[in-house]
Design a protein around this nucleic acid. Structure first.
Lengths: 239, 239
DNA sequence: GACATGCTTCGGCCCTCACCGAACCATGGA
DNA sequence: TCCATGGTTCGGTGAGGGCCGAAGCATGTC
């Protein structure tokens, strides 16, 4: 009866509304799953989250309405994916503040999945895990990426991408380099347009391949060779 | 009865719990107010948010328990502030994703406060508003800050801080330069250790002064001179 | 001491919202 | 045409949580 009458701050309302979208465990599970950068069907997400299809349908409605997800309907399937890099960044940055994965390892299957994810995975559209940080470290060590005064590619870095045949869209408004805090390594890895381009190239050129249906990736023998030759990444940093 | 039994993803639970802290309008209003980087008492925040003291007390309990706020008790006052730059960054990044301030200007008093805030303000511990972006633009134009390949100070930039007598803590783990999306200008301004140092110096040296009890700041005549001389900031960019 | 002030705790109210199952609608395949 | 499958809509239920006022503790003032 008191607070009801006062004119609330619209900024606060907007912030709370946005946060409320992420403040549900089921929706959070969906968003984390979608961090693999691919499109999932509503049914897949329902099974993944362990709720009824009807429940999940409502969740998707909210997330789409909130602008976090984009949907694409194909036949009787409703495909849904993170709306854009901005939405992905939001989930990333929030997830990064999360205390810790915590907990002792679960079943054998779980822990083997976990260690594969720790070794290498994609984070929305760039590389993460030991693979991601190893590549980021190598770029830094070679003077291709600066971390001491911020987080940016150097001239030499831009050139490296060019000679490696990895196209960078310099005209986009998306920043070339961005730091993304790695969940397992607790250190930043390369995100942004350059991170995405590098990841795409790594998958296209067979430097690494996806394993399982999740976000984990595995470096191939060819990938080890290329990463060692082009960036001086020590092969054992990837294991 | 179905979802209740399935083992939920702990990551999702943690993310949801963190988001839930921000998903309340009253708590959001507190966090936004605390973005001024100063400590507020519980009573001030209660009045600011328009709720009973008892209600706000509970909110503060949750925010402190969640690690977003740090408290300091002095006599019968409970002072509370953002826990650290990490927490501030979280609020910032979430607030930055918010659609838009929206809405027509309110009362005269409100709109004059609003325009003062748009002109210049602090954002946790660095400069924002037209002032913040003007300084950021000037740094960029002079080759002291790179934005095209990420967001980082250049060698010349580090040197500029040194000759201006603004100390930079290079040993800290906090990144020197970070991009923070400006709410009013919709463009990035300088945050991070360098942004904080610059803001502190600007206040200490009288380049700008706080007006009112809020976050708004006003550039002084001396400030205009210094910013023009040292960075080439055109005085009318600050009005 | 007695009193004011700032904060906290407690009980109770009420609204919101995640959840389900059942019915319903659409698509695509026999 | 019928059926299987994926998705959505719609009541109904229950838990959670934000809110208040009143009472209770501190702290600092007279």
């Amino acid at each position: 009866m008191l607070g009801h009458m006062t004119a609330k701050d619209p900024r606060a309302a907007a912030l709370a509304a946005l946060a409320a979208l992420l403040a549900d465990e089921t929706r959070a599970a969906c968003l984390l799953a979608l961090l693999d950068g691919r499109a999932w069907t509503a049914g897949e997400l329902a099974r993944h989250a362990g709720v009824a299809a009807s429940t999940l349908s409502e969740h998707l409605g909210k997330l789409v309405a909130g602008g976090l997800l984009a949907e694409e309907r194909q036949g009787r399937h409703r495909y849904v994916r993170l709306a854009d890099a901005r939405a992905a960044g939001l989930v990333e940055s929030l997830a990064a503040q999360t205390p810790a994965p915590a907990g002792p390892p679960g079943s054998l299957r779980e822990s083997s999945t976990r260690s594969a994810m720790a070794r290498g995975r994609t984070c929305y559209d760039h590389l993460a895990g030991r693979l991601g940080t190893a590549v980021t470290d190598a770029l830094t060590l070679r003077g291709l990426l600066r971390q001491d005064t911020g987080f940016a590619l150097t001239e030499a870095g831009v050139e490296w991408f060019a000679t490696a045949g990895i196209p960078l869209d310099l005209s986009s408004r998306r920043p070339l380099a961005r730091a993304c805090l790695d969940w397992t390594e607790r250190r930043p890895h390369l995100a942004g347009a350059a991170g995405a381009a590098l990841c795409r190239h790594a998958l296209d050129a067979g430097w690494c391949v996806r394993i399982g249906s999740e976000r984990a990736v595995k470096v191939t023998a060819a990938g080890e060779r290329e990463l060692a030759a082009r960036l001086g990444v020590p092969p054992d940093a990837l294991r």
